[in-house]
């Protein structure tokens, strides 16, 4: 329960911190940390416009998308705090839950019958397909290391047996950061601030969403950031620590992660669209390196 509330709480600040970092670097006047929240509150006070081409799919999709992301939050542990739901193989459910949300958003985009949104939809479908193995290989490495298969147990036992686990952690964090960027359609896969529809991925998919639905989609994005931030913090937090250290570490890591994204976005250009698949496959390749490293650490590959 605590982890659920903490993630919800950190989600509120997340996009604010990213934007603050970006404007600081660009030497612009900084918006309030809560600007994103204000925007969504404004959206919740508005009516909606639905395209005449759309059907019931378009109306239900944002709701299902939001619900799946909220569901995904329930599985995420923080330090020694279990997620609200925790069982063997919960990460499979977690990954497929996010996939369900994406499936609905993709068909909703196609439902509008717009060329732009079709473009975004098929890019999103391809990229999220390509990034899927990286996540599974990462979790597989942890299962190999700890002999557990639920999120909480994986993390809880990660740093217990030996400090060699930190070698896995570092590379895993690198991969997770980029998975988070792909899942949220950020740099270097997609540029949320671009002005041209033809170069967008996620933003172009939601062109026709408005009012309440758009608000939900925004909140889902925050939640996704907070989810991945928590997963990253779990790689660092040792469950043997006192609860207040864990709490401080969690908050600290979330803030650093958000600032890091801001930095990445400020200094990096978007990949060329056709290079994206290669770049995504590279993530899986690095994940395989993590797997092999784990095999070495667990003495299954014997080197000398």
């Amino acid at each position: 329960m605590i982890s659920f509330l903490l993630i919800l709480l950190s989600a509120l600040f997340f996009v604010g911190i990213i934007n603050k970092t970006k404007s600081k670097i660009a030497a612009r006047k900084m918006p309030s940390v809560f600007q994103a929240v204000f925007d969504v509150v404004r959206l919740f006070k508005k009516g909606s416009i639905y395209s005449t081409t759309t059907s019931v799919i378009f109306k239900i999709a944002p709701i299902i998308y939001f619900s799946t992301v909220l569901m995904a939050v329930l599985f995420v542990p923080i330090g020694s705090q279990k997620g609200l739901l925790s069982f063997d193989g919960d990460f499979v459910f977690f990954a497929y839950m996010l996939a369900l949300g994406k499936f609905m958003m993709i068909i909703a985009a196609m439902d509008t019958g717009s060329g732009f949104e079709g473009m975004g939809a098929n890019r999103e479908a391809l990229y999220s397909m390509l990034v899927e193995p990286a996540f599974f290989i990462l979790i597989g490495s942890m299962a190999l290391f700890t002999n557990n298969i639920s999120f909480h147990d994986l993390y809880a036992n990660l740093h217990i047996s030996s400090n060699l686990s930190y070698t896995i952690s570092i590379v895993s964090i690198y991969i997770l950061i980029y998975i988070a960027m792909v899942e949220n359609s950020r740099m270097p896969i997609d540029d949320p601030k671009t002005h041209l529809e033809l170069t967008m991925v996620h933003e172009v998919m939601v062109l026709d969403n408005s009012g309440f639905d758009l608000g939900l989609i925004h909140i889902a994005t925050w939640l996704k950031f907070a989810i991945y931030g928590s997963l990253i913090s779990d790689f660092i937090i040792n469950t043997a620590w006192q609860w207040y250290y864990q709490l401080v570490a969690f908050i600290g890591i979330q803030i650093i992660f958000a600032m890091l994204i801001g930095l990445l976005e400020a200094f990096r250009a978007r990949n060329k669209m056709e290079k994206n698949p290669q770049w995504l496959i590279m993530l899986s390749a690095i994940a395989v390196v993590v797997f092999l490293t784990t095999l070495i650490i667990t003495n299954k590959i014997i080197l000398n």
């Binding site: 508005k46 009516g47 639905y50 395209s51 759309t54 019958g113 717009s114 309440f212």
Partner: peptide
Amino acid sequence: QQKKQIVSQKATWGC
């Protein structure tokens, strides 16, 4: 939420 607001139908946005 939508009971209190205006919900309308328009063509798909095409630039």
